[in-house]
Design a protein around this nucleic acid. Structure first.
Length: 317
DNA sequence: AAGCTACTCAACCGCCTCATC
DNA sequence: CGATGAGGCGGTTGAGTAGCT
């Protein structure tokens, strides 16, 4: 006997989400926060399965998502993490702020796999392909070396001292990342918060994961024109949500003036406001306040917006 | 311009894990 | 301790789009 389906599928809508559905879901979550996903569709007035709502939110509507192709640096991280973790996409995603497991999985399957094969690396084992498997002509020398663990690194899998700028990250990645990841894998199931996860906040000794957003605010633009738009100009495909641009703009704060200078919602003050908007029962009032210029008092006791257990990108509070 | 092919990625499906009873 | 339910995860699919002929 099988399990019961997660929801009654009769009469439920499937397929691409419409702008209206997105709006309803965002509205609901902004007002009520995330609660029992099973109940969300009913409460939000959606003819969707709870799972579908969760997926839509976590993979597409979450305000902290980065859009666009993975950077070279992120790609390297994915490769290294994959070498350590295998196809545990959610674990890999947890090392890449603003990226979802689905996104990384897709990118792996469409880009990185090919790239590695081209370089003569088996994407499954991360070892050199046997000569029969090598594409012809012979692969160019690996431009993305999978760094081997040095003796020193094995002995001292130290955390990276600082958050690096991207060019620095690229340069130092190969020497430092491997050890960090290795160490992380070793400890991840025992005590994730003590790991030396590169790219997460806890790589920095003394920093509390709860205190500082991992993603630089400027990296987390949530301008409405990009929020629900397809990830990049190159991937402007996007079936479902082409019509859903400016969803946030269309929400209750339709007269909210979105900054057009690159300020994201996750700038500190915006973040605080988000947090309150989400958690405060009196959200309408807060939204009005936000629309009036985000002059909302900071409520320190307000719980963080917790979207899922692995998301450490949230919250200042 | 039309047809075809390859590619991308949002969304679904089914299984797994974990919490609760 | 097993049954059940909910959330989460990874594999897969297929619609939409870009690029090529």
């Amino acid at each position: 006997m099988g399990r019961q389906p997660c929801c009654d599928k009769v009469g439920l809508k499937k397929g691409p989400w419409t702008a209206d559905e997105d709006k309803k879901l965002i509205n609901f979550i902004l007002t009520n926060g995330q609660c029992c996903w099973r109940a969300v569709p009913k409460l939000a007035g959606l003819l969707r399965c709870g799972k579908s709502c969760r997926l839509r939110w976590t993979n597409y509507l979450r305000p902290d998502l980065k859009r666009g192709l993975l950077s070279e640096y992120e790609e390297k991280m994915v490769i290294d993490l994959h070498a350590q973790l295998g196809n545990r996409w959610s674990k890999i995603a947890s090392h890449l702020p603003g990226r979802t497991d689905n996104e990384i999985k897709n990118h792996w399957n469409t880009h990185i796999k090919k790239k590695l094969r081209k370089m003569g690396i088996d994407p499954l084992t991360h070892k050199p392909l046997s000569s029969s498997e090598l594409p012809s002509p012979p692969p160019q020398q690996q431009e993305l070396q999978i760094p081997q663990e040095t003796e020193q690194q094995q002995q001292n899998p130290s955390c990276l001292p600082n958050v690096l700028t991207e060019p620095d990250q690229n340069n130092q990645l190969e020497t430092s990342l491997q050890s960090n990841i290795t160490h992380d894998v070793e400890v991840e199931d025992k005590n994730i918060s003590s790991s030396c996860t590169f790219g997460t906040m806890d790589i920095m000794d003394g920093f509390c994961v709860d205190e500082v957003p991992i993603i630089e605010p400027h990296e987390m633009l949530v301008h409405p024109s990009s929020t629900c738009a397809p990830s990049s100009s190159a991937s402007s495909s996007s079936s479902s949500s082409n019509g859903s641009n400016n969803i946030l703009e269309d929400l209750q704060f339709s007269d909210f003036e979105w900054p057009n200078n690159g300020i994201g919602l996750w700038e500190e003050e915006y973040l605080s406001s988000w947090d309150m908007l989400i958690n405060d029962a009196d959200s309408d009032r807060k939204l009005e306040a936000a629309a009036a210029g985000l002059d909302v008092p900071l409520v320190q006791s307000c719980p963080r917006m917790v979207l899922d257990q692995d998301s450490w990108a949230y919250g200042l509070l």
